[in-house]
Simulated scan of single mutants.
Amino acid sequence: MKIVVVDYGMGNLRSVAKAIEHVAPKARVVVSADPRELASADRLVVPGQGALHDCLREFLARGLREAVEKASREKPFLGICVGMQMLFEHGEEGDTQALGLIPGEVPRFARGLVAADGARLKVPHMGWNEVIQTIPHPLFAGIADRERFYFVHSYYCAPRDAAATAARTEYGLSFTSAIARDNIFATQFHPEKSAAAGLKMLENFTLWRP
């Protein structure tokens, strides 16, 4: 099995690759920006961190759009953090036109967020938080509902179709923290930074047969 981690010059690519190698030692894990490598992959991972407009600029400059869009229709596909955000139509950050594979927007957390107990919440949302599963999904196999995962982001995904939401998280509001559609699964949180639960999710991805 060949798993390609898409390299567009942004994000913690090596830590994602190392985590996948750990849970799937028999797989061939490749970090690449070569569309031919993406086309020959059995599974594709698009990670990312930083600003959506910067990530998307580098992504498009490397000529990756066609190969990633094709993979998103044909093979198991995992997006992580900005790799989830770029699947949507439009990002508020930099007024960015994204890939448009999932209908919806990527707005910024509003100022003045408060927790249920009245405490003020900081933006970016950074650290561990609960992930509330809203649908059963193979990538949640063996992971308890409300398990805690690691987040770092100032923008969040707002799918237009509620059926695309696979999990939600509370941070001053209830936002979509994972999406699922056909062979696409994507998370706002970082499985590769989320200890045992994150490794389990990555392992589930390597076994997933959508």
Rank of each mutant, 00 (worst) to 15 (best):
L52I: 15
S154Q: 03
L44Q: 01
P136V: 09
A162R: 06
F109S: 01
Y171W: 07
G198W: 03
L173D: 06
R181Q: 13
A178D: 01
F205G: 02
R43D: 04
I184T: 02
M126D: 07
K26W: 14
M126T: 10
G48E: 03
L52T: 14
F149P: 00
M84G: 08
A110V: 10
V5Q: 00
H125T: 04
R160E: 15
T96F: 10
L44I: 04
K18F: 14
K75Q: 03
R14F: 14
V82A: 12
L38F: 04
V6D: 00
F149V: 01
F189L: 04
G100N: 10
L13N: 01
L99F: 10
G127D: 07
G91S: 10
D117S: 04
H137C: 05
E147Q: 11
P136S: 09
R160N: 10
H53G: 14
R160F: 09
R148M: 06
N204I: 08
Q188A: 03
P25N: 13
E170T: 11
L13E: 01
E203C: 08
V82I: 13
A119K: 14
I179T: 02
E89Q: 09
P138R: 04
L52N: 14
A24L: 06
Y171M: 08
L60S: 13
I3S: 01
T206A: 11
R14M: 11
P76C: 11
N12E: 07
W128A: 02
F185P: 02
I3M: 09
R108T: 11
G142R: 07
G112D: 06
P107L: 08
G79P: 05
V29C: 01
E37I: 07
A141P: 03
A178L: 06
E130A: 13
V23F: 15
G104L: 08
E21W: 13
I102T: 00
H137S: 03
A33R: 15
G11A: 12
L56C: 07
P138H: 05
D7L: 06
L101G: 06
R111L: 12
H125V: 08
A164C: 15
